[in-house]
């Protein structure tokens, strides 16, 4: 409990406290009330980062969850030879450190060292340029999808296994086909798992940091210091020394994340039988 207080409650309280002050040239550290928040809401860099992770969220999360769902349903269908190989194989990327994942994909993306360059050499023109301005966000999305698809698949698969076999049997006797069973039995059974996976994915997207920050070393001009709100907060406090404003940004993003996660949870559980 002491550790919990030290690492959870205290930082939260401390950052709220920090966000209400400002270090000024004249007068030093003064209480400014909500001025930092006013500044943040008018901050175009923060807005740009927030919109970027919002767009990322809207595209990457559905794709990743649908792919994970397909994989989980396929493994659960029992029509697959060697399903445990697929289960473990697809989950394996989750165990790979994020840094290593980004380094690997970064090399693969690289036109000088990696596969993208090999493909371009083969076709004779720049077919694949994942590290260019148009594609960099998709390149990041691919890395995140690669890392977490298997994890989400496992959550879905665990939920599917909880469905009693008697239900499938009864459905089969009633003449329901595979797709009918998926639609009417499996998907409703997955409702809770889907809500959880969506919430975790939303949190993950809003906190996007590792992938762009490491890719930045490969393409320093494309990824700005305010590429995502989290990178912005990091750079504010460690490069810009504006700790008060950084705390403000962190709190705003935390609150937005919590609100969205809460709304998803409400919408996801309402209408459910439970």
């Amino acid at each position: 409990m002491v550790v919990f207080a030290l690492t959870f409650i205290a930082p939260l309280v401390y950052s709220v406290y920090l966000s209400l002050f400002r270090d000024q040239l004249v007068g030093g550290n003064v209480f400014v009330g909500l001025d930092n928040y006013a500044q943040a809401f008018a901050d175009e860099k923060l807005l740009e980062g927030a919109l970027r992770v919002g767009a990322f969220l809207a595209v990457q999360v559905p794709i990743m969850l649908v792919l994970a769902l397909i994989a989980a349903l396929a493994i659960d269908s029992k029509r697959l030879a060697g399903s445990s190989l697929f289960r473990i194989g697809l989950f394996l990327p989750y165990a790979v450190p994020g840094v290593v994942a980004v380094l690997m994909w970064g090399f693969i993306y690289s036109e000088r060292l990696g596969l993208a360059g090999d493909v371009n050499d083969t076709v004779g023109f720049d077919l694949m340029t994942p590290l260019s301005g148009d594609w960099i966000l998709f390149a990041i999305g691919n890395i995140v999808t690669w890392e977490f698809m298997g994890y989400n698949m496992l959550i879905f698969y665990s939920a599917l296994r909880a469905v009693s076999h008697d239900v499938y049997e009864a459905a089969a006797i009633d003449g329901a086909g595979q797709f009918r069973i998926i639609w009417n039995i499996k998907l409703p059974a997955l409702r809770g798992a889907l809500v959880i996976a969506t919430i975790f994915s939303i949190i993950g997207s809003f906190q996007l940091f590792n992938e762009p920050n490491i890719l930045k070393s490969l393409v320093p001009t494309l990824i700005t210091t305010f590429y995502t709100p989290n990178m912005y907060a990091y750079n504010l406090s460690f490069v810009g020394q504006q700790v008060n404003y950084a705390a403000t940004v962190a709190i705003i993003m935390g609150v937005i994340t919590a609100v969205i996660a809460y709304v998803v949870q409400l919408r996801g559980t309402r209408g459910g039988a439970r």
Binding site: S15, Q207, N230, G254
Partner: peptide, 11 residues
């Protein structure tokens, strides 16, 4: 629901 990275800077 509180993400680790949000806590890291204040910590």
């Amino acid at each position: 629901a509180v993400p680790g990275t949000a806590l890291a800077v204040p910590t």
